[in-house]
Write a protein that binds this DNA or RNA. Structure first.
Length: 470
RNA sequence: GUCCCCUUCGUCUAGUGGCCUAGGACGUCGCCCUCUCACGGCGAUAACACGGGUUCAAAUCCCGUAGGGGACGCCA
């Protein structure tokens, strides 16, 4: 059970598409902060806009969070389902004289904004309906908050520090639409209050909204939560991250070969750091992360750094787990060309493979040397290696291989070294043609390791294939 | 247009008045290691946006300027 005053944070995305990378970062920061404080992290879907919300998006958000290992406490809250509660609050404000009915049409409002803009005035609702004594029919009015226009509102933001805004900047915004559904502004406040949210951690695009929302808290006599507005993420070009500018869904990063722990590690370093630490485990992050240490400046997304961190986590990852990830990819690609015992070979060779792969795509490709059925196809570089000289060395070394009592990488390595010395060549002169014959490529894990994993029979067969062909 | 926010190497950051001739990481470029490719090791490159203050002392505090971002919906 959490302590009565324990921290409760939430992630509240709108289900209008996949969980994009910026949203994932917001969720991560909320999660880390809650865990750091020994509190709870909740998930609420802001689906009050029925026209744009889809179940697919709700599913994508959940699966995205699960993939990243960001688990939420309790059940997912649907904001839409709480609409009656939101309306109840709107009517309570109406009854208390803190809100009023407005019958202005969208056309009137557009004209008002246009006029204000050309006149150089702020584009705000002028409150003309607040003085009317009317009783419009249901469906013909919206409910607006009668905002406090005097004085100023001071926000003590955990990240932004103290921010002051004159209340004259805040207009009488809409709480309830003419169809009786709540707007975002009302719904967030009511839900955050009802869910007991103590810390609202969100993008700083919400910073100015906060001053509006604080007016609702005040009107209702509710305590305000603590706010923390984190800087947004930008694309590599320095522009706001949007769907056109690289704001991909988290599953896109999975499909590009990223490991979730690498994505999390990268994301948490955008706008936050802890001394010189770069590789930070989840446990370490929970221990260190505090929202007050988040910087104020927007950060650019850097694919190179993500790739580097991913490569690091690839090396650390469990062999079996990696095999499970790449197996379906290899199966799909090879089909009938899959060799007998491919999976066992891949698992045995995983250490050598994963050390060289930046991502799971590369890993799956490099693992093909163990998965493909004979005869191999040779890439251009491999064919270069199997030139007259290479084939000649290979032929001679082939004879030595038959004399070997055992077939392990050390024995093979020693045999090759001995052969090279006898013939008076460098080790590479025999290792490279061997690699080409055995893998069809010029790039692979250590060739003697490959030979051990392939086994004597398969290795010799591959060498003979090459000797016959070239 | 109005309001709000931001500004340290190309990028992410450390730095909270003296430890800064500004540290780390990614990238880039050398060299070493080496059977290829990676890893790793060593080294190099490169920044306090600008201008004024305050102070014995400023990347750090204050004020301007410039540049960037965000908000201004019956979207969230």
């Amino acid at each position: 059970m959490p302590k009565p005053n324990a921290v409760i944070t939430r992630f509240a995305p709108s289900p209008t598409g996949f969980l994009h990378i910026g949203g994932a970062r917001t969720a991560l920061f909320n999660y880390l902060y809650a865990k750091h404080m020994g509190g709870k992290f909740l998930l609420r879907i802001e689906d009050t806009d029925r026209a744009r919300s889809t179940q697919e998006a709700v599913d994508a958000i959940q699966s995205g969070l699960k993939w990243l290992g960001i688990d939420w406490d309790g059940d997912l809250v649907s904001q839409f389902e709480r609409a009656p509660r939101h309306a109840e609050i709107a009517y309570e404000l109406l009854a208390r004289g803190k809100a009023y009915k407005c019958t202005c049409t969208p056309e009137e409002l557009d004209a008002m904004r246009e006029e204000a803009k050309t006149a150089g005035r702020p584009m705000r609702y002028d409150g003309r309906c607040s003085v009317k004594t009317h009783d419009p029919a249901p469906g013909t009015f919206v409910v607006r908050l009668k905002a406090e226009h005097a004085g100023e509102t001071v926000l003590q933001d955990l990240i932004q520090g103290e921010v002051r805004v004159s209340n004259s900047e805040i207009d009488d915004f809409v709480l309830l639409r003419s169809d009786g559904t709540p707007t975002y502004m009302l719904a967030v406040v009511v839900d955050d209050h009802d869910m007991g949210i103590t810390h609202v951690v969100r993008g700083d695009d919400h910073l100015t909204n906060t001053f509006r929302q604080m007016q609702i808290y005040t009107a209702m006599g509710w305590p305000t939560p603590t706010f923390a507005h984190m800087p947004l993420m930008h694309g590599s070009d320095g522009k706001k991250l949007s769907k056109r500018h690289g704001a991909l869904g988290v599953e896109a990063y999975r499909d590009m070969g990223c490991l979730p722990e690498a994505v999390c590690n990268y994301l948490m370093r955008l706008g936050w750091g802890h001394g010189d630490a770069e590789i930070i485990s989840r446990e370490q992050a929970i221990e260190w992360f505090d929202v007050k240490d988040v910087g104020k400046a927007a950060a650019r997304f850097d694919a190179d750094k993500l790739a580097n961190i991913n490569a690091h986590y690839m090396r650390l990852a469990d062999d079996q787990r990696l095999a499970d990830i790449i197996w379906p990819m290899i199966e799909a690609k090879l089909g009938n060309a899959m060799a007998e015992g491919a999976r066992e070979r891949i698992l045995k060779g995983m250490v050598g493979l994963k050390d060289r792969a930046k991502n799971t795509i590369e890993l799956a490709e490099s693992a093909e040397i163990y998965a493909r059925k004979r005869p191999l196809v040779f890439n251009d570089a491999a064919m270069q290696l199997l030139n007259e000289e290479g084939i000649s060395h290979l032929q001679q070394f082939r004879v030595h291989l038959d004399t070997l009592a055992s077939w392990d990488s050390t024995t093979l390595h020693d045999a090759a070294k001995e052969f090279a010395e006898q013939v008076g060549i460098k080790l590479g002169k025999i290792a490279q043609p061997l690699r080409a014959a055995l893998t069809g490529s010029n790039i692979s894990p250590g060739v003697f390791e490959v030979m051990e994993i392939l086994g004597r029979g398969e290795s010799l067969a591959r060498i003979d294939d090459a000797l016959a062909k070239f």
